[in-house]
Nucleic acid binder design. Structure first.
Lengths: 151, 151
DNA sequence: TATTGTTATACTCTATAACTATA
DNA sequence: TATAGTTATAGAGTATAACAATA
């Protein structure tokens, strides 16, 4: 066991991860037809159904104030609507509108196209498998991942 | 050959990549002691020596104007200095100062610590290998990577 | 008092447009 | 005219602080 060696290895990996992540984030943003946080919220609402501001903020790992801002923009664009929770007047249920679902489909077609194409054309199947596995590993680094052996 | 299947697979992977990249970028920024683009430039200057605004902009994949802004902030903080190129008065050489190198070391110690720790503590060696390989694959997606078989 | 949500404000990051200086 | 660089301005994204309404 050589903790020093593996620590140095981990630090180097962290640096490489930071660099490539910054560049990918910039690239995704530059290709996007609508702001990334808005699309992230729409995608989640589509997958998981209506939700509240607090819950969305926690899931997306931003402050509730930031999420309120994002939701305000989505509502102004008619992509989500709000309805008060009948059982708790403090809470507001956020729901994707039909127009929101359409916008999401557009986003996926256009804004993720460069990445989809690069993945399909430039990578081998083995590399795609590495990338898929890596998305799981990165979620673990963020503290979201399942403990190593669960589904 | 089933191009439709592999396209769908690529599109799904692209979506997962976008999500995890956005979250990692946010996390790195929230931990950083100094702005990420400034540290990226300092790191490059340290590794590769003095450079020009245009060259740094091309390498970091931002516009020259954005890079000029970043360099202006670094200079105001005393982390880089500028010296005119004697052979071409239009060009300006950017160089990391001793203070800049110190700031970079601090940044690595503090801002990348959460990721280094997570990588060292949470991941198996196999997962670290997957992650390292994935940083190479992601660079290929960005069009920076070496063609599959070179070093 | 605690919880949910919003509004106001500020800072970081990057872009486009318009400009200066040198080749 | 073309190239290297800068300044001005705007917009996206996120944060903290302060506030309103409900439990």
């Amino acid at each position: 066991m050589s903790p020093d060696l593996s620590d140095a290895q981990a630090a180097e990996l962290a640096g490489e991860l930071r660099e490539v992540v910054a560049r990918l984030a910039r690239r995704f943003r530059s290709e996007a037809t609508l702001p990334i946080p808005q699309m992230a919220v729409l995608g989640r609402l589509e997958r998981e159904g209506p939700s509240t501001t607090s819950r969305l903020a926690a899931l997306e790992q931003v402050r509730p104030q930031s999420m309120a801002h994002t939701i305000g923009e989505l509502e102004a664009a008619g992509l989500v609507d709000r309805s008060p929770d009948p059982s708790d007047g403090r809470q507001v249920l956020i729901r994707a509108t039909a127009r929101g679902v359409d916008a999401l489909a557009d986003f996926r077609r256009v804004a993720e196209r460069w990445a989809s194409t690069a993945i399909a054309v430039e990578l081998t199947q083995a590399e795609r498998d590495v990338l898929r596995e890596a998305t799981r590993v990165m979620r673990r680094i963020l503290g979201e991942g399942p403990p190593r052996d669960s589904a």
